[in-house]
Write a protein that binds this DNA or RNA. Structure first.
Lengths: 117, 117
DNA sequence: TATACATATGAACAAATAAACATATGTTTA
DNA sequence: TAAACATATGTTTATTTGTTCATATGTATA
């Protein structure tokens, strides 16, 4: 590469960088996005989410099903609740949890496709 | 709830748990799925991925763009490579990275939709 | 209203990991 | 082939976070 080409190359890269920077969403949004994926990024939580793919479950069900302590399940459900990934309803002494919406199912399914490649 | 109802309730829960257990993918797959999302679950990596949404970029571009050290970018790209989220090609001294496939874009987009609600 | 059952919460500890710094590898060109 | 540039890798450190144990809250029933 001659000197002229070199300069042109660098200028072109600068342009690209500038353009990308303009299109990039605010840091705050990307931070939230990372936080969202972080919630999916733990095997216990993924197991919990997946177990609710077809049906609602109460805390005790999940604990037995996945062989986890009640405390651990409850802690993780708290995180899933605060990220709006699950919703819940009380029925007597039990509280039934289920996936919050189709987004959650879609995100998991997309991930599955990538993993199963 | 009477004693009979109580027994029926417990039996019904057991059935549900058993059914879910049968449908649940192997632990290994769910573990891989969590590992995949974990990669998306870091704000630096998400920023890097997002910056490549429209165009390929070399390491230096990304470092300047996101105001990160070359080392940090390189470390994160290694993780993105090994998860098959990005691909790369060499051109002279530079190495250009880009999103590996449409899955990656789809997963990010789905997450964005959830975040922007 | 006392007891049992279901779930939630708080605190402490151990494991995982992102960033920084130093250095190594690989590529081009003078 | 030596120097400059671009990227990769190894190591240490500070921070984050999942689990456990103990305990609290909330609900139903005898």
């Amino acid at each position: 590469m001659g000197e002229t080409e070199e300069r042109e190359f660098l200028a072109a890269r600068e342009d690209v960088v500038k353009k990308v920077l303009e299109q990039q969403p605010d840091d705050e949004i990307l931070y939230d996005l990372a936080e969202l994926f972080k919630v999916f990024g733990d095997s216990t939580r993924i197991k919990i989410l997946y177990s609710m793919f077809e049906t609602e479950l109460c805390v005790n069900d999940i604990a037995k099903l996945l062989n986890l302590s009640q405390s651990s399940v409850s802690h993780q459900l708290r995180i899933l609740k605060s990220s709006k990934l699950v919703k819940f309803r009380r029925e007597g002494k039990s509280i039934f949890y289920s996936l919050d919406d189709e987004h959650v199912r879609a995100i998991i399914s997309m991930g599955m496709e990538h993993v199963e490649e």
